[in-house]
């Protein structure tokens, strides 16, 4: 693939430093920038969040609706062994173990902006592989137009599923071209370590130009289909959550503005930041939606 992300591994704070990054960044900033001549201007003010922030502030309703519930309860989830049932319009359907999947893909680091539909944001240094690699491995048949994903549903390990906050199991979907896009990854790690359970271990989707809830966690099932698959938040409230859910500062959520976001980690007096079209990935993904009315297809 000719794709080059605008953030590279040089944007990640070295592992030894990230736990007390804030003390170190001030001094190291000048040094770090000196080594990053080719970086795009927009990327320069991006600073990955700490692991504590990334793994301590999550929406993963299977473990409770509080932002700290996933960190408290997600350890209950058994993540090994793990397999994904791949089916639908593929040449090689079947149960793919994590080992099968990881043997056929290239893991790399991707530092992405992460924008929640609730108007907060982080920057996360993921480790993962492009979803298109997995899809090529299983052989997508010509009639397939969408990819449907499903999260594990385990009442014994997920205390939150007792409450019908949304319909379980959690399901999500992408159009095939979105799924094949080089920015779309399956993440298995953060900061070079295995992904914490509360962030969607052992394997999750990351679609950086869409609101966070599209990036479905702890995936157990992937199905290639020819019709738009149902998605959890759209089923729960179609007026508020569309199938596309692209980050778009000009299309507000019915209950709040999407024009700006609170950057997690800035402290209580931090200013809000303007939300970027497609979360800052407009150059790479806008062509996918050419000719579509984005206020209709929100």
């Amino acid at each position: 693939m000719g794709f080059k992300p605008d953030l590279t591994r040089h944007d990640v704070t070295p592992k030894g430093l990230y736990l007390n990054r804030r003390q170190i960044m001030a001094g190291a900033g000048g040094l770090a920038l000196a080594g990053l001549g080719g970086r795009r201007a927009m990327a320069q003010d991006l600073e990955p969040n700490t692991l504590e922030e990334i793994s301590g502030y999550n929406n993963y309703y299977e473990f409770g609706t509080g932002k700290d519930d996933p960190a408290k309860y997600a350890h209950m989830l058994t993540t090994s062994p793990w397999s994904i049932e791949v089916g639908g319009m593929v040449d090689k359907p079947g149960d793919y173990s994590m080992e099968d999947i990881l043997s056929g893909v290239d893991i790399e680091e991707r530092i992405y902006r992460f924008r929640c539909v609730e108007a907060w944001s982080m920057v996360i240094p993921w480790n993962g592989f492009e979803l298109n690699q997995l899809l090529e491995q299983v052989g997508v048949q010509s009639g397939a137009k969408y990819v449907a994903f499903e999260t594990a549903y385990r009442p014994d390990e997920m205390p939150g599923v007792k409450f019908p906050v949304v319909e379980w199991p959690y399901v999500e979907g992408l159009r095939l071209d979105e799924a094949m896009h080089p920015l779309t990854i399956m993440a298995t790690g953060i900061y070079g370590e295995p992904i914490p359970n509360q962030n969607g271990a052992p394997i999750r989707l990351v679609v950086p130009w869409k609101y966070g809830f599209k990036s479905i966690k702890s995936i157990v099932k992937i199905t290639l289909v020819d019709e738009e698959p149902p998605t959890t938040w759209n089923k729960a409230n179609a007026r508020e959550y569309g199938f596309y859910s692209n980050v778009n500062p000009t299309v507000d959520h019915p209950r709040w503005s999407q024009a700006t976001e609170r950057v997690i980690g800035g402290g209580i007096f931090a200013a809000r930041k303007d939300t970027l079209m497609f979360n800052g990935y407009e150059d790479q993904v806008a062509s996918l939606y050419e000719g579509m009315d984005l206020s209709e297809n929100y």
Binding site: G56, Y57, D68, W120, I264, G265
Partner: peptide
């Protein structure tokens, strides 16, 4: 707690 940073990860909320 908000000022000294012990109010969790999203202190304003």
């Amino acid at each position: 707690k908000g000022v000294v940073g012990t109010l969790g990860i999203d202190p304003v909320k």
